[in-house]
């Protein structure tokens, strides 16, 4: 490490910072401007979609999907990570299989789901062949919103669990084996070991996985849009609809702003939690 004073080290950051100001900072400000630009009243763009209830509906669905998907992913990923960390014969092979969805886009995940749940999809084929259904069961379209909702939820869980899994596994691997051996010597049960040793050490990894997943859950777009269009409205989908189909950037920006504000609030809560943990650490 070389100690640098003066301006030299900062020069190395000029391209990055300039770019990010231009392509993140400016768009964020512009989003504010667009959202509050309305011919008659500043909140007009919001009122237009709140009066009809559209925005509340999209917000409600987005929240509901996040509230189910994120905890489910966490539990599922933790179980997977604990299982893989047993290092049984052939665990590496399974590790690679689990990591495949990490490379898949929401678009292909949605289409995979569609191949399973479409009217001619595998679920219907199997049910009809087994004689458990006479005609196809519809999962998508008007009147089938509840089913569509659960297909979205399952798809999201399938697609994004591996992301949580790799974070937790990395955290789990950093647990000093001697802690667990000490626990064995003192006769801790498996459950106690998990609760009293593994989970507390894993807490930072869990928190960061939670943050990332919650942030992305509120940006859900491809899966919901491709499978249901606006039948299950979500925030990003509404933004896309208003921008690309209604050509109204102002309303679209209002939706964008809601997503941005939610992200900021979540990051802020996360920072507070992190800081209070540091204070705890300082006291102990």
């Amino acid at each position: 490490m070389t100690y640098k004073k003066g301006i030299t080290p900062y020069l190395y950051f000029i391209p990055v910072i300039a770019f990010l100001i231009m392509f993140l900072g400016y768009p964020l400000i512009e989003t504010f401007r667009l959202a509050f630009t309305h011919p008659t009243e500043p909140l007009g763009n919001f009122l237009r979609v709140t009066r009809t209830g559209e925005m509340w509906k999209a917000l409600r669905y987005t929240l509901m999907i996040s509230a189910i998907v994120v905890p489910a992913q966490l539990v599922f990923a933790l179980a997977l990570a604990l299982f893989i960390n047993m290092r049984f014969k052939g665990y590496l092979f399974l590790l690679y299989i689990i990591s495949i969805p990490l490379a898949l886009s929401d678009v292909s995940a949605a289409l995979m789901s569609y191949s399973i749940f479409s009217p001619s999809g595998y679920v219907n084929k199997i049910l009809m062949n087994l004689g458990m259904a006479d005609s196809p069961i519809y999962f998508f379209g008007r009147g089938f919103e509840t089913r569509a909702f659960w297909v979205i939820v399952i798809t999201e869980i399938w697609r994004a669990t591996p992301l949580v899994f790799v974070i937790l596994l990395a955290g789990l691997q950093s647990v000093n084996k001697e802690y667990l051996e000490a626990a064995d010597i003192f006769g801790f049960s498996r459950w106690t070991k998990l609760r009293k040793i593994i989970l507390p050490i894993l807490k930072p990894a869990i928190l960061s996985a939670l943050l990332i997943r919650t942030l992305f859950a509120f940006q859900i777009f491809g899966v919901a849009w491709l499978l249901t269009g606006r039948d299950i409205p979500i925030l990003a989908g509404e933004a896309y609809y208003w921008q690309s189909i209604r050509y109204n950037s102002n309303v679209a920006a209002s939706y964008g702003l809601v997503i941005a504000l939610i992200s900021i609030i979540i990051s802020w809560i996360y920072l507070i939690v992190l800081r209070s943990r540091e204070v705890e650490g300082a006291r102990a």
Binding site: L24, L28, T31, L34, I259
Partner: peptide, 20 residues
């Protein structure tokens, strides 16, 4: 600061960038 931009919902920049 760079880490925090990773929590920025990048999708929202599409709309303002289009006008730019």
């Amino acid at each position: 600061a760079i880490l925090l931009t990773r929590s920025f919902p990048v999708l929202i920049i599409g709309i303002p960038l289009l006008t730019l």
